[in-house]
Nucleic acid binder design. Structure first.
Lengths: 350, 350
DNA sequence: GCCCGGCTCTGCATCGATGCATCGTTGAAC
DNA sequence: GTTCAACGATGCATCGATGCAGAGCCGGGC
């Protein structure tokens, strides 16, 4: 048995296709009698409107794509949740796609057929995509694109981010204020797609500069990715440092920090007494870790809110108001990994 | 400027619409000359096929919906990743939707218009949906639906799960084998939508029965949800138990266990010396926790694999072969929280 | 009694692409 | 030289719904 169409309902109710459409959509005035007949027919046949057809006619799908590198990275899944929730309030469905950081996959989603017709717009957290890729897009003819994160500052697109340099400086200064002198930085990525990491490294340097302290380049550790395993590995290497281990570590995200802490604890190093650790992102796992994790907390709800609002605005008006840069707030949350001992369990620290 | 259509390309290339379609899709043989002309026109105009129109004609969208309760729960995001990856290999795009456990939202996705026309099928991990809701669906006329998890065993749909009763029994027996005598169970949900939890409670009971031990009902703790906060709270309550704290805890998922461990450590209770803890799900956070978490590890890759394969099969053939039940393997992974001290950092335990 | 305005309701065209039948041309086979 | 198959290319109908213009009918006003 096939799905009933508007036409089937019309035949059964003895009215025109158009009238059924009107009833279903609550459009024009319809006499009570016909309305009742149509509604009965709809119920009997179990009619459901075909959204694909509707989309074809209207040119809009009511779907937004959210493209993130990895779904099982808490920062992204928490952010995704916020975006989905916010977009739903505006009547949009969000399709989440993960790229695994593959350039081809990101490119396909931004340039490809899907975006052109399946989604009304895309919110992208680029990882591998280069400036060149984005420049190749023709903004005047493409669907709206909102970028999340720091990259591609001078691009032709709206973008939402926090001030990574400043936030990294705040995190580093916190460690300096604790009297730590040999502060390692874990997570630098001195290559094309590591722009966010590079900004954090800059903040790390600025903090030292502001305090008139010299940066020990050998304490800046590169990691291929931002996972727990990378943090654990980097920390193991730091413990072997020729001048001895550092007395503090600024990790460029919470996963790196949690991996690093794991390594420290298994080696009998005390956190924060021997080595203090700061993370970045404020994921839930950090709040419940022992020791709980001091971290930079970007306001994910605000990021999601700004990104979705921006997208809605783009979708609404025809006026091309030029690319907009939006900054979301963040805060340093001090927990046990830098000295605060045993707060209320799971305390948010806010 | 508007998006070019097949027709625009045809005009520019001086051929028929149909020929352009053939070139774009690589269908029928086309002379090299016309092919070149068409390809040039496509490139010049920047033509992209309209997927909505294509979908309308073909009746398929190439999209599957994966519906989970909460995206930022690691178990689901890890599972989602596996499903997305697997489905992509079959040429399907997966749309992930979270329901926040709201019955209405789940119902809408299963019964509503979107499924009827926007997705070729749905893989659902039901939380709030009742048997009655599912029974109301007409399986013969709806799109394929594959259920994940334990619920609704006798439904009319394919379903993929692990043997929760047996797995819970294995986890509990592991604690009994360690010589623990007062084993708490954290996460029971004795209400309609808590079927998975109830199965785990059954396994917990069976383990005691098999060992000829009596269950202390006051050690079975109910939690509203399965988050870290719930585990922390439940553990705090258990520490106040009139007969004193238990000497082991079986938590119904890893988040509960991590929350519980956090509470224990902040109260100066040693894990596993004073209280051993077992979790369920094997999320990455448990591997890097200190102490690392002993847990039941359902094979998520297999679950995703089975679910997607089943879906593909349903989409392929017309034959209604009746609902299929598929069981995915699991294993107990012993780590520090039940006694294994300092394995290789991040060791998977496999 | 006639005309006009408003309210219902309808048919046709359209969104952009594909399935199918067909038509003209060419080359090979007899 | 004729027949026929294969090939290349095309037009029309169609997928399911909505926009638009207008038809039919009713009642009210003069």
């Amino acid at each position: 048995m096939t799905t009933p169409r508007l036409r089937d309902v019309a035949e059964r109710a003895g009215v025109s296709i158009r009238t059924v459409s009107n009833v279903v959509n609550g459009y024009a005035p319809v006499s009570d009698e016909k309305r009742a007949r149509v509604e009965a027919a709809v119920a009997e046949l179990g009619y459901r409107p075909n959204l694909t057809a509707r989309n074809l006619k209207s040119g809009r799908t009511g779907m937004l794509a959210l493209v993130v590198p990895e779904l099982d990275v808490p920062y992204f899944s928490e952010l995704a949740r916020a975006v989905v929730t916010k977009a739903r309030q505006h009547g949009y469905t969000v399709v989440i796609d993960q790229t695994d950081g593959e350039p081809d996959r990101e490119r396909e989603l931004i340039m490809g057929d899907s975006l052109a017709t399946m989604f009304d717009g895309v919110i992208l957290s680029p990882l591998a995509l280069s400036q060149a890729d984005l420049a190749q897009r023709d903004p005047t003819r493409s669907r709206p694109l909102v970028l999340l994160g720091e990259r591609i500052a001078e691009s032709a697109y709206d973008h939402v981010a926090i001030d990574n340099v400043e936030a990294a400086r705040v995190a580093t200064e916190h460690l300096l204020d604790l009297g730590r002198t040999r502060i390692a930085a874990v997570g630098d990525q001195p290559w094309e797609t590591g722009e966010t990491a590079q900004l954090r490294t800059r903040g790390y340097r600025e903090a030292h500069q502001a305090r008139k302290r010299k940066v020990d380049e050998s304490l800046i550790v590169t990691t291929r990715r931002f996972h727990r395993a990378n943090g654990a590995e980097a920390m193991a290497a730091l413990l072997q440092h020729p001048k001895g281990p550092p007395d503090a570590v600024f990790c460029y995200n919470d996963l790196l920090a949690l991996g690093a802490i794991r390594t420290l604890l298994t080696h009998g190093v005390r956190v924060p007494e021997d080595i203090a650790v700061v993370g970045f992102d404020d994921i839930e796992a950090g709040r419940y870790n022992t020791p709980s994790l001091t971290t930079i907390s970007p306001n994910k709800a605000t990021i999601a809110w700004l990104a979705v609002d921006r997208m809605i605005a783009r979708l609404g008006k025809r006026s091309d108001s030029g690319p907009v840069e939006l900054w979301a707030p963040y805060e340093l949350i001090v927990r046990e990994s830098t000295g605060l001992i045993h707060p209320a369990v799971g305390g948010s620290g806010t």
